[in-house]
Design a protein around this nucleic acid. Structure first.
Lengths: 336, 336
DNA sequence: CTTGACTCCCAAAACGTTTTGGAGAATCTT
DNA sequence: AAGATTCTCCAAAACGTTTTGGGAGTCAAG
């Protein structure tokens, strides 16, 4: 409500002293420090953010880019993650701003605008692609950033990711151990790293078991995409007896396809993400999830450390995947 | 990459002229304007955001508060809405920042911090409560804001909301017309305006039809809450034959309860929100949705108009509710 | 040749903070 | 008692922009 000058005047002190008192410098006596702080509390003084940012040459802002295609808006727990991240950043005096992608502009344009306008101190990128131009741009500019998901960039960069390869390999091997031989994969768009990674995991397991890898269909990473991809696999002359789906949303779409085609409850299925919804599908959806809790806090921590200048190599977290067993993966490996 | 001073120097012009040329003022000749703009493009000049904000006394920022309880994080299309809103705000030079609520602080504290630190020009509030302290605070401070959902505040304020009363009344009357007499309501937490509004709609219809209003159970606005509430209603001596659920997520939880108790497909059910998931439940979930498209753009427009000083009365949008009929509402009104 | 209008440009102030580089007084050292 | 040290405090610069209030020219009219 007031500014430093007024506060200083009312106390009969200089602006300098008031500022330093509030920041807790040792070169102002304990007595005045107290006096200043009391007065500041009483008038409800808050430093003007813009002025501080200008003087400190820091934006006190971190931007997170939202993918533009509706529905493609990142993992389902995205909002919880954002919230947690924003909360921990706030504790360090940083706010999280949303960087949407307007029609006609690329995600790269957005990065450019935020970075070149010195609007942010760092960026958070979600839904990385295998070749991600945003990553290359930010690396060339030397702006700190963290991605949710790896990329195939040559230079290392900070990221947090789940080990989709290991997870999908394990899930596929488990179906194999349960007697399944025709195990299909419902894949997400392969330009995304996560989708490609998970597909590779399934493929690796199939090859280890000496099985053909033709039971694979790709679709948009949503219910509809999973539904269509499942129908495609079910049209095959020799149907799969188990399905490994890139995401829970795709798996839920696939469940509907199964219900329509063979009444359901014949084909095993497993998803990934541990959507809350999964416990309420019919049958309840077995799934996988990245280990580790409070992802948002991890992102915030990595961002802060990246801003502090830690090298990228030390800012990479690859989390293991754990099974969340419900019912949908238990169907027997009958012949079709 | 450069600042105004350097740019001016390289052109042999004053800072003033360069600044005004870039802003398109008429008092700089067309020739120099062109020259300045070309040079600015070439060096990729972007004005320093902090400096402009300080000088203009505007934060160029709008904050949206996220409810803290995980899962309670607003309506399901929330992220799409945010994205759309941020996009349209960006076109007006405003960015959207996320204001999470750290543990131990109230949503009011957050508002206070953002407003008193002059960090934002306006605020966007979601998931309003009937008595919402944030609204009262912002009104007392005279800060522009828009809410997603009405409140019972005495002073009018800008909002966008769906007419939950009319929607739930209509849904209930439709069940009555289809022969249902025991129509239950699965309600959200009544301190939220939307939950109370929807409950009132159901209740009004029941009373119009001369039916008792005791088949009502309240739960958290999530799958689990709907599941538990449905179980409660199904334990009643005289079961409902139809359920009107405050949200789709609750309805999906209720669907599971129905499957467990009577094998499903006996009791009609309808939700609200038109979650994409609803098309893939078993049975596909009939639901309702607020009319109007690109909600985010509407929020952005209202925010801009509120900042421009338009009176609150002209910034209120109450949208009609439309049915989205799938299968779950068609079960006959058998005797229990 | 003056006057006024018009065009094009600029110096300087202002926004509210943080930080630099001391200044003056009090206290300690020798 | 003089010098060194410590303790408090402060004036002024700086961050990069926008905006105010002109100041030179040029030109046409009187």
């Amino acid at each position: 409500m007031a500014n430093l000058k007024q506060l200083a005047q009312s106390l009969g002190l200089s602006i300098t002293t008031v500022s330093r008192a509030l920041d807790g410098y040792a070169d102002v006596s304990a007595a005045t420090r107290e006096r200043v702080r009391d007065a500041a509390d009483k008038v409800g003084y808050r430093p003007n953010a813009s002025a501080r940012r200008l003087r400190r040459q820091r934006a006190e802002l971190v931007a997170v880019t939202l993918p533009s295609d509706p529905g493609h808006i990142g993992p389902p727990h995205f909002l919880d993650m954002l919230s947690g991240c924003a909360e921990h950043l706030a504790a360090a005096g940083l706010n999280l701003v949303i960087a949407p992608v307007p029609r006609g502009e690329s995600e790269l344009d957005i990065c450019r605008r935020f970075v070149d306008g010195r609007r942010v101190d760092a960026m958070l990128l979600v839904r990385t692609k295998r070749k991600d131009e945003r990553v290359e741009f930010l690396q060339s500019r030397g702006i700190p950033f963290v991605t949710n998901g790896r990329t195939e960039s040559l230079l290392p960069h900070p990221y947090i990711d789940g080990d989709g390869f290991a997870g999908f390999r394990a899930a596929t091997l488990r179906f194999h151990a349960a007697g399944h031989r025709r195990i299909g994969h419902i894949a997400g768009p392969q330009e995304y790293y996560f989708a490609h990674d998970r597909c590779r995991g399934w493929r690796a397991a199939m090859e280890e078991c000496g099985l053909a890898t033709d039971l694979c269909a790709e679709g948009a990473p949503l219910e509809q995409g999973g539904y269509l991809a499942a129908l495609e696999l079910l049209r095959q002359p020799s149907r799969p007896t188990a399905l490994v789906c890139a995401t829970d949303e795709m798996a839920i779409g696939a469940l509907r396809a199964l219900r329509e085609v063979d009444g359901g409850n014949q084909i095993s299925i497993v998803g990934h993400d541990d959507l809350a919804m999964g416990a309420f599908t019919s049958p309840p959806l077995s799934t996988m999830r990245m280990t580790g809790e409070n992802l948002g806090a991890s992102f915030a921590s990595l961002l802060l450390r990246a801003i502090a200048g830690e090298p990228a190599e030390e800012l990479q977290e690859l989390h293991a995947i754990e099974f969340v067993d419900r019912d949908s993966h238990r169907h027997p490996a009958k012949a079709a």
